[in-house]
Design a protein around this nucleic acid. Structure first.
Length: 754
DNA sequence: CGTCAAGCCCTTTTT
DNA sequence: GGGCTTGACG
């Protein structure tokens, strides 16, 4: 260790407090850009310099990337050499604390001891895709029509139960409606199915760890003794199960330091419970409370704007960020004709700042929904701007990648029927749906797993010799690689496997560019595998599979070195910072999202999302909105986002591409072009209202008849139709002539018809 | 058994 | 607008 440790240099007063008070409970309220990571890394380094053993420290981060960066920084602070570096999860092994996400930490704990709960240690982890498939099966078996209860909806409930740590049994007592009873029955069968497949889903990782702690107190005790100093970052985004996990660990020594910002709580939809942070002090009355309010990231102008937006939320802690960076450009609020222009303008703005010396790496386009990414991507391609999209169709969720992963999973764990079904006929080997049906029937008759059935395929009378032979050669193939998997690291034998199944040929068969790309993805997967070459063969396979399910998209940002513009959702941008931030689609119905418009709490969360997005900006902040946009196949006009109206005039600069262009689509639809009307920026829905001014539909503009789904209406231009969807003021009408369009009820010239 | 086209549905955010 | 499922046909 170095002689002079600069651990307390360059810290402000509250940061120093956070760093040096290492014992007992502590709550650090750390606003955006307040040097939170710095405080945390210095705190940990300080502890170590004071004689705390590194392996006694646990830090839970929100992403693996954050964990990696923190380790790096701590290493630098302590001038630890590469040799001392421990891999995450090797508790007690190294001179770097254990750091990782709740999920990765719990997965490690379970890999070691889940057999104490009567389960197998080589479990696989199911991602959202797998969950969906499994739930589909479950519902099918229960003979519940997908239309009555969609797998996604069922999983939504299940997820909420799990976040609250409510078992199917506990849930049953809450079921009041038949529908809920079905949901809970589905929850129970889903759990059984997971267990049968020797699989855990994301939520199970936390829950089973908690269960392990509860049912085997010695194990809890072991971890309590190991990890005596606990840290949780982004505490505002923890759910109840995670709360239980960390509380149990903290019980003994009470050295729990949580860091968070209630204003940045944006994961309520996955069970994050903001009360965890708000009630921390009630639970630990002796907790040290530290507020970090100085922002080192943004200009005061950016902060003024962000503060103004977040202030409109009730019940938030009293805090206001400030910055020493007083000067800076105003925030540009740019209104354009439609989403194409929006994308074009955003990319153009990035190019211009690049010319002024801000690299693309320091610039980002963020948006509310993944669906918005495509246009920005296309604009980048058109203009030749290098870009990368984070999120969206995730690499590990791609078909060909999941296919290869399914082979590896089956080889590790033949109980994983879902994966087995996936690869049985991929690449095509003439084992079709009929054959699979016969085998499944045989399996359930004889209480066998699908894999066991495969071994006894010659006993199934319904199958002819040809098909039986093909199945046998498939099981022989899997058998061959099961043996190899015990002998050599994963990358090595996977190459042989791909060769045996002629994966390259299968993917490139259609001769398209897409095929080439798919094969490229498979090769990329192999290159990730090489990271596990040094481990023993069995752990090499297991660790690899674990990594690919638990890495988040943001984790991969750090590996990329080229200068490229980043595109991502608002949720993914948390914790990041850029010189230039552009937020697209600042329109009602987009952001805030239409599903959130009529729910107070959800609206508050949307607002926090806006706050998070804005506070990513160091210097340049640009908010984009359109007057009209193609959405789900129809043209819509949305009012400007309510968040924009909270921006103080003196920090914004409003821009608008000009005039009349909003009428272009009307011309295209053969409607007479309006020429005499000036469109002011921020006035919406002119389009629908204007060309029907000769009609009066007074009854429609009052609260009058409720226009719900199914109501028959008449439109002067488009004729008769039926309302097929309603989102607040906006209805979608399916016209009898086949056209479908969205209208704003308060303005649209509609008439209810018999 | 595999392919293709038409129709269906959806359409928030993620470890 | 697009991804996915379903159904008809080769």
């Amino acid at each position: 260790m170095s002689e002079r440790i600069p651990i307390l240099d360059n810290l402000n007063e509250p940061q120093k407090q956070a760093v040096t008070n290492v014992k007992g409970p502590a709550l650090i309220l750390a606003g955006a850009g307040s040097g939170k990571t710095k405080a945390l890394t210095h705190r940990i380094a300080y502890m170590i310099s004071q004689g705390v053993q590194p392996w006694q420290i646990l830090a839970v981060t929100f992403t693996n990337k954050a964990a990696g960066e923190m380790k790096e920084r701590i290493k630098n602070l302590l001038t630890i050499t590469q040799d001392d570096y421990a891999v995450v999860g090797e508790a007690g092994a190294g001179r770097i604390p254990v750091m990782g996400t709740f999920h990765s930490i719990c997965a490690r704990i379970l890999r070691r001891d889940i057999d104490k709960l009567g389960r197998d240690r080589s479990f696989v982890i199911y991602d959202a895709d797998d969950q969906d498939k499994l739930m589909k099966e479950v519902l099918k078996e229960m003979r519940i029509d997908e239309k009555d209860l969609k797998p996604k909806a069922a999983l939504g409930y299940v997820g909420r139960f799990k976040c609250e740590a409510i078992s199917p049994k506990d849930a049953m007592s809450q079921a009041t409606t038949p529908r809920m009873q079905n949901v809970i029955l589905a929850y129970a069968s889903y759990q059984t199915a997971l267990k049968k497949a020797n699989a855990l889903d994301f939520d199970d990782l936390i829950l089973e760890a908690v269960r392990l702690f509860t049912e085997v107190p010695e194990i809890l005790d072991r971890y309590q003794e190991t990890w005596r100093f606990l840290h949780v970052d982004e505490y505002q985004d923890t759910n109840h199960a995670q709360y239980l996990f960390i509380s149990m660990l903290a019980q003994k020594y009470r050295n729990l330091c949580v860091i968070g910002d209630p204003d940045q709580s944006i994961y309520a939809f996955r069970g994050a419970d903001i009360r965890n942070i708000l009630e921390f002090e009630e639970e630990y009355p002796d907790a040290l409370r530290i507020k970090l309010e100085q922002n080192y990231r943004s200009t005061q102008i950016v902060l003024n704007a962000a503060n103004a937006v977040i202030k409109a939320n009730p019940n938030r802690p009293d805090k206001e960020m400030w910055s020493a960076r007083k000067d800076g450009p105003r925030i540009i609020v740019h209104e354009v004709r439609d989403e194409k222009v929006e994308a074009e303008e955003a990319v153009l703005a990035a190019e211009n700042l690049k010319k002024e010396g801000i690299p693309y790496n320091e610039q980002v386009i963020i948006y509310r929904t993944n669906a918005q990414s495509r246009l920005f991507e296309e604009a980048c391609m058109r203009r030749g701007v290098p870009y990368r999209i984070i999120g969206g169709v995730k690499f590990y969720a791609r078909r060909e990648v999941k296919d290869v992963l399914a082979y590896l999973r089956v080889i590790l764990n033949t109980a994983d029927t879902l994966s087995l079904l996936r690869i049985l006929n991929v690449p095509a080997r003439k084992i079709g749906q009929t054959t699979i049906g016969h085998m499944q029937a045989f399996a359930s008759q004889n209480r066998l797993s699908l894999w066991q059935t495969l071994q006894r395929v010659e006993e199934i009378e319904a199958l002819n010799e040809g098909v039986a032979a093909r199945i046998q050669s498939f099981t022989a193939l899997i058998g061959k690689y099961q043996k190899l998997a015990e002998a050599v690291p994963v990358a090595q034998w996977t190459l042989g496997l791909l060769d045996d199944i002629a994966m390259e040929k299968w993917l490139k068969e259609d001769g398209t560019e897409e095929g080439e790309e798919r094969w490229g993805n498979v090769q990329e997967l192999i290159s990730v595998m090489h990271k596990y070459d040094a481990l023993d063969p069995h752990s090499s396979l297991m660790s690899f599979l674990e990594e690919v399910t638990l890495v988040s998209e943001v984790d991969k940002l750090s590996d990329i070195k080229d200068d490229a513009l980043t595109l991502m959702t608002l949720h993914l941008c948390k914790g990041l910072e850029f010189e230039h931030v552009m937020i697209g689609g600042c329109e009602e119905g987009i952001f805030p999202h239409s599903n959130s418009l009529y729910d107070r709490e959800q609206l508050e969360e949307e607002r926090r999302l806006m706050y998070v997005g804005m506070t990513r900006a160091k210097t340049h902040l640009r908010l984009l909105l359109t007057r009209s946009r193609m959405l789900y196949g129809t043209v819509t006009s949305n009012a400007p986002s309510r968040f924009l109206s909270d921006l103080p005039d003196d920090v914004t600069e409003k821009r608008s591409d000009e005039l009349l262009s909003a009428f272009a689509w009307a011309t295209e639809s053969g409607v007479k072009r309006a020429t005499d009307k000036h469109i002011e920026p921020f006035r919406q829905r002119e389009v629908e209202a204007d060309f029907n001014q000769d009609i009066t539909f007074d009854e429609m503009n009052q609260d009058g008849p409720t226009l719900d789904k199914g109501t028959r209406v008449r439109h002067k231009v488009f004729g008769d139709g039926t309302i097929t969807a309603k989102r607040g003021d906006v209805v979608t009408i399916q016209f009898d002539n086949g056209k479908r369009k969205d209208f704003a009820l308060s303005i649209a010239p509609l008439q209810v018809i018999g």
